[in-house]
Design a protein around this nucleic acid. Structure first.
Lengths: 327, 327
DNA sequence: CCCACGGATGTGACCGGTCACATAGATGGA
DNA sequence: TCCATCTATGTGACCGGTCACATCCGTGGG
């Protein structure tokens, strides 16, 4: 009743274990009839290759582990979903390893974890300092692809893939300016790059229109810090347009605006980033930039498997109800 | 420059490889000084045990794989976060495997995947038919714990852990009734159990108050179906209170209400389920039931490691701004 | 006609741990 | 004093695949 091994299949098919191994690994040098026979026997015996034995013999597991600072925030979770989906289709096991912070200890532990060949290939989500730190410290011999902010990460020669949101950020800013706003304020989410792409696009559009460039208000990943940032802006009566670092931020900013009695979009226009599934159902529905993180995750897997890569669709502005001309 | 093996450590420490193995596995029969010596050598050589070799020798990997229908929805994602966190602390690798649907093929593939001992122990998220299907088909010899809806899943003798939200659902309904609403409507999310706990608690409270029990309006996981469900209720002028299956549903229902010109909470009160991070920042802030899915995930890992289990905190109603007396 | 060559297949060693069992030394009761 | 017992440690086989290499066969060119 114990699970069949490669040798059991070989015996039942009357071939050597190596031939079975060849069939499993799609070696070209197997006669079609032999292959057919082996496949049938594997089917009949319900044979499943043992991943551990394979990893041990191969020296590296047929697996992907995603190293990330978070698993629940929209972008991170969606990316993971994309990796899992693509990995599964390729018959790869998918693992997750979170790096709690960018402290030396946390980064080191994560690096050690994926340095074990059993971890397989690695996708590091380098949207933040923790992920970036892991990417920098990763030994040369572990195959890795990094999902980064637009433009990649300087100081690393690893393969990097990203969604280029700079253009869309500029589009969003231009949209607001075109509506008649004198300028656009920005609430930034945490970021690794000194000048994040979202912020860069926003600057581009402002400079292009010769609009004043207000100071960036920084927020964290949590709603509370975004709310606090929103309060600061809500109290300044001259702010009429805000580009938020992401949709969750926009939600909290909108709340702060509301508490200060400033209607959206009547008094202030807001634009988010990501286009979370619920954004279209907000009241008012949120104008935001759609980011396809699932596709990004799939692209990372494709790069790892050096499969043909379909180009990533560029992020684009989705116009809804949260923007309007200034009062 | 190649990674050191257990034999290298043994040679450097002047002991046998078995002794090193004993140190790694915390065997009690090692002299303290010997242990100390080996630990130092392991440190110096940067020794990291090879997980694949270990899994092969042990017959089962020191790992946990989470089988789930989804990774991005709040409850699922949070549960995964809890499992990862607890698993990591125990030195276990954490994997994810999604079951796309409850079709026989999908379920079978997932079951085969985790039947490989390399998958380690398994946490199946049986909130839905897909997960429940996997749980039912899983061979006896794979160690598993299931996270289920309140009350567990009939037809399986596996270990099950859940958050008991029935009480909280009843509390939420009573709260609404206490405010003066004649009855409370319910928009349900997909569920495995014929009578889901949320729905059961709602019924309990309605029956207890001898209030009419309206027909349940079913919705899917997507915002659109929740929105459609909301529209149906929004058009009925006699509905003044709605208990939604989760917060995302509540968001879409509120949107439908808004479009029909019905103010929340002025004309209609709504209550959600989950307490997603942004719920407190909605406009109006959402009254909802807080569910600690992260703790649920941790509890699953604890059960698998048969560690002492801290009892799970019961879900409870968080009063905010989306409920008020009927007009 | 023979031999070089390439495709199909089989054999033995190996990946890096674990298990079962053997062995040596220390302890203690009769 | 001697042997039973327990603790600390070492040895060989094994987990289930893979790799490198050997072997066997059919084919085509010199």
């Amino acid at each position: 009743m114990t699970a069949p091994r490669i040798r059991d299949v070989a015996a039942a098919a009357g071939v050597s274990y190596q031939t079975v191994s060849r069939v499993i690994n799609d070696s070209p040098n197997v006669r079609p009839e032999t292959r057919q026979l082996v496949v049938e026997v594997m089917e009949r015996l319900h044979y499943r290759p043992n991943r551990a034995a394979r990893a041990l013999g191969l020296g590296r597991a047929r697996a992907i582990t995603v190293v990330t600072a978070n698993t629940t925030l929209y972008g991170y979770a969606s990316l993971l979903q994309g990796v899992e989906e693509a990995g599964r289709q390729l018959g790869l096991a998918v693992g997750v390893r979170v790096v709690e912070s960018d402290s030396a200890a946390d980064v080191k532990h994560a690096v050690e974890y994926v340095s074990d060949p059993t971890a397989g290939s690695v996708v590091v989500v380098a949207f933040d300092p923790a992920g970036a730190g892991v990417l920098r410290l990763l030994p040369e011999d572990v195959p890795v692809v990094a999902a980064t902010e637009a433009g990649g990460l300087p100081g690393s020669t690893r393969r990097m893939i990203f969604l280029d949101e700079r253009q869309a950020a500029a589009d969003a800013t231009r949209h607001l300016l075109g509506l008649g706003h004198r300028t656009v304020h920005h609430v930034a989410i945490p970021s690794e790059a000194p000048a994040a792409a979202r912020q860069a696009g926003w600057r581009d559009a402002l400079a292009e229109a010769r609009a004043p460039i207000p100071e960036v208000v920084a927020a964290g990943w949590d709603s509370r810090s975004a709310y606090l940032a929103g309060q600061r802006l809500a109290r300044q009566t001259d702010v009429t347009a805000i580009l938020c670092g992401n949709d969750d931020t926009a939600l909290a900013v909108r709340r702060a605006l509301f508490e200060e009695g400033r209607d959206v979009p009547g008094a202030v226009s807001i634009v988010g980033f990501d286009d979370v599934p619920g954004a279209a159902y907000w009241t008012p529905a949120l104008t935001t930039v759609r980011m396809d993180f699932v596709a990004l995750g799939r692209a990372c897997v494709a790069a790892l498997a050096d499969a043909p890569e379909a180009p990533l669709e560029a992020p684009r502005l989705i116009l809804r109800e949260s923007t309007a001309p200034p009062p």
